[in-house]
Simulated scan of single mutants.
Amino acid sequence: MAEHGHRITAAIACHVARADGSVEQLAQLLLHPDHEGGRHARHIALRSGQSRALEYIHRVLACAVTDFGSSG
């Protein structure tokens, strides 16, 4: 289930990267309680703390930016 959640997060991060969005925008989107796509990030925040979730979101967006830059 965690792998599925990560894939959803990565897909959302790719869309944010394509739109030149920031890590703050992605975090706001994923950590919003009404955004179903952020369930994985919110689970990390509940389990390991907000700072760990923000580190995860930063890594996922960095990978998306790298992937988008190499293919877009």
Results as ranks from 00 to 15, higher is better:
Met1Glu: 10
Met1Lys: 09
Ala2Ser: 13
Ala2Tyr: 06
Glu3Arg: 13
Glu3Pro: 02
His4Cys: 07
His4Ser: 11
His4Tyr: 14
Gly5His: 08
Arg7Trp: 13
Ile8Ser: 09
Ile8Asn: 07
Ile8Asp: 02
Thr9Tyr: 06
Ala10Gln: 15
Ala10Phe: 11
Ala11Lys: 14
Ala11Gly: 15
Ala11Leu: 14
Ala13Glu: 08
Cys14Tyr: 07
Val16Ser: 01
Arg18Leu: 10
Asp20Leu: 08
Asp20Gln: 13
Gly21Ser: 01
Gly21Gln: 04
Gly21Tyr: 03
Ser22Cys: 01
Ser22His: 04
Val23His: 07
Val23Tyr: 03
Gln25Trp: 01
Gln25His: 01
Gln25Ala: 04
Gln25Phe: 00
Gln28His: 06
Leu29His: 08
Leu29Ala: 12
Leu30Pro: 04
Leu30Thr: 06
Leu30Trp: 05
Leu31Arg: 06
Leu31Ile: 03
Asp34Cys: 06
Asp34Glu: 11
Glu36Trp: 00
Glu36Pro: 00
Gly38Ser: 10
Gly38Met: 03
Arg39Gln: 12
Arg39Thr: 12
Arg39His: 11
Ala41Met: 08
His43Phe: 09
His43Gln: 12
His43Trp: 12
Leu46Gln: 14
Arg47Thr: 15
Arg47Ala: 15
Ser48Asp: 15
Ser48Pro: 01
Gln50Met: 08
Gln50Lys: 05
Ser51Asp: 12
Ser51Val: 02
Ser51Pro: 01
Ala53Tyr: 03
Leu54Trp: 02
Leu54Gly: 00
Glu55Met: 02
Tyr56Gly: 00
Ile57Leu: 09
His58Arg: 11
His58Asp: 09
Arg59Gly: 01
Arg59Val: 00
Arg59Met: 05
Ala62Asp: 15
Ala62Val: 10
Cys63Ser: 14
Ala64Pro: 07
Ala64Met: 05
Ala64Phe: 09
Ala64Val: 08
Asp67Ile: 00
Ser70Gln: 11
Ser71Val: 09
Gly72Gln: 10
Gly72Tyr: 01
Gly72Cys: 05
